[in-house]
C-alpha cells in the first residue's frame, strides 16, 4: 500500500542552530501521528516544514496526489503547493485568529475554500457552510456572524469546519486545544476524533499534552532538541517508553 505521506530525512536549521533534523516516517491513510515534545523540541518547526510553510534545508516530503501519485512537495512549484493546501491538505492553527478571516462571516469563512476551487452557486455554498457548521456543533443561526463574536472554542471549531469543507486527506494541527478551557478542549477532542474516523482523515498533530495524544493519535514521535528520540505506537511509547527522555515525560504527567 502506498503511504499517503513519505517524509525522508527532513532537516531545518536556523543558522547553526538545529530546528529539526533526521526526521523520516511514512504516514498511511487514516493514521494519526502525534508529535510531542516540550518547548524548543522542534515539533512546531517540523510541522511547519512538513506543511510547506517553511522550506527544509534537506530532505523530501512526498505526498500521494490524486492525479500524479507520490510527488515531492518540497520541490513542487508554489502554485501547486498552494493548490494542495487548499484542497487535499488542511492546517489547523493553535490560535483561531491565524486560521480565520475575522472580518468575514462564519459562512464566508467556511465557503471560502469552496469558492477558491471554483464553486459559483451561492445557494449551494451556503448549504455546504450550514451543513459544516452543524457538524462542528455551531448553531446555524450564527452563519452570518463574524468570528470576532464567537468564543474561543467556537472559533476553533469554525477553523476546523473551514479546513475540512473541501474534504482534505491530510490535516496538520498545531496544538489544536492549546489555550482552551478544559471542558471546551474535551468537546473539541471528541469532535476531532469523530471527524477523523468519519472522514478517514490522516493527521499530524503537534502537542505538548500527552493526554491529547493518547486520545487522538495512533502513532507517536517524541522530540527533544530537534531530534526524534523515540517513535512507535502511541500506547506502546506511553506504556513502555524506551528513551530516558520519554520516560521522564511520561512520569511527569500529573494524574487527576
Amino acid at each position: 500500500m502506498t503511504p499517503l505521506l513519505q517524509v525522508e530525512n527532513i532537516a531545518k536549521f536556523y543558522g547553526a542552530r538545529i530546528g529539526c533534523t533526521d526526521v523520516s516516517f511514512d504516514l498511511y491513510p487514516g493514521e494519526v501521528m502525534g508529535i510531542v515534545g516540550e518547548s524548543g523540541s522542534g515539533k512546531s518547526t517540523l510541522l511547519n516544514t512538513l506543511a510547506g510553510h517553511l522550506t527544509p534545508d534537506r530532505g523530501a516530503v512526498r505526498f500521494d496526489t490524486r492525479a500524479d501519485g507520490l510527488r515531492d512537495t518540497v520541490t513542487m512549484s508554489e502554485p501547486e503547493r498552494r493548490m494542495l493546501s487548499r484542497t487535499d491538505w488542511a492546517f489547523v492553527h493553535q490560535h483561531a485568529r491565524d486560521g480565520l478571516r475575522m472580518n468575514v462571516s462564519a459562512g464566508g469563512n467556511v465557503g471560502e475554500r469552496l469558492m477558491a476551487v471554483g464553486a459559483r452557486h451561492y445557494g449551494d455554498i451556503r448549504a455546504s457552510a450550514t451543513d459544516w457548521l452543524g457538524r462542528v456543533e455551531i448553531n446555524e443561526d450564527r452563519i452570518d456572524d463574524r468570528p470576532s463574536a464567537f468564543s474561543g472554542g467556537m472559533q476553533q471549531r469554525l477553523q476546523i469546519a473551514r479546513n475540512l469543507v473541501t474534504g482534505p486527506r491530510l490535516v496538520f494541527m498545531d496544538e489544536p486545544t492549546g489555550g482552551l478551557d478544559v471542558s471546551v478542549q474535551a468537546r473539541l477532542l471528541d469532535l476531532l476524533r469523530g471527524l477523523v474516523r468519519e472522514m478517514g482523515l490522516s493527521a499530524i498533530i503537534v502537542t505538548h499534552d500527552l493526554a491529547v495524544v493518547r486520545l487522538l493519535a495512533d502513532r507517536l514521535m517524541v522530540m527533544k532538541d530537534g531530534h526524534v528520540v523515540e517513535t512507535g505506537l502511541t500506547d506502546q511509547v506511553l506504556d513502555d517508553p524506551q528513551h530516558g527522555y520519554t520516560q521522564l515525560l511520561v512520569s511527569s504527567v500529573l494524574q487527576v
Binding site: 502554485p79 487548499r86 459562512g107 469558492m115 452570518d144
Partner: peptide, 18 residues
C-alpha cells in the same frame, strides 16, 4: 500571480448574505 480569486467571491457572498 496564482489566479487565486476565491476571496473576490467571498466579498460577493458577504454582500448577498447581508
Amino acid at each position: 500571480e496564482l489566479e487565486e480569486y476565491g476571496l473576490m467571491h467571498v466579498k460577493l457572498y458577504e454582500d448577498i448574505a447581508q
